[in-house]
């Protein structure tokens, strides 16, 4: 589904906007960036607690249009700047990776 539509549907608090042309097909949940870069599918939403600039680098390289930072992690300014530059969305949530994963799964399967 369209990334913007997805963000609205999950009621995400975006701190960096999503690319309105991007598509979200699935999700990937990991706090290990090496694992994410090896395994995160293209067009997935990346669910993590890693709130720093390197997460944006990984997202750019694997083709992830949206990062969700869980457990109230706050994206630092340099991360937001990098994300805007690379047209990658960042959302912050108080939910855990587990909770947000369920939500993401529900929304993606409902609309299929």
């Amino acid at each position: 589904m369209n990334a913007l539509e997805f963000a609205t549907e999950v009621r995400l608090h975006l701190v960096a906007g999503v690319d309105s042309l991007a598509i979200i097909e699935t999700g990937y949940c990991s706090d290990l960036l090496s694992d994410a870069i090896a395994n995160a599918p293209v067009n997935s939403v990346f669910i993590t607690v890693q709130a720093h600039k390197n997460t944006v680098a990984v997202a750019t390289l694997v083709g992830v249009p949206l990062i969700i930072l869980c457990n109230n992690r706050i994206a630092p300014l340099d991360m937001i700047d990098a994300a805007i530059d690379k047209k990658i969305g960042i959302a912050q949530t108080e939910k855990s990776q587990f909770e947000i994963s369920i939500l993401v799964h529900t929304i993606l399967t409902q609309t299929r």
Binding site: S34, A38, T48, Q50, H52, N54, T55
Partner: peptide, 16 residues
């Protein structure tokens, strides 16, 4: 703590 150093780096390079 930054999500690196899981011992996946070189194996990943070899794999791809």
């Amino acid at each position: 703590s930054m999500g690196f150093g899981a011992g996946m780096g070189l194996p990943n390079v070899k794999r791809v």
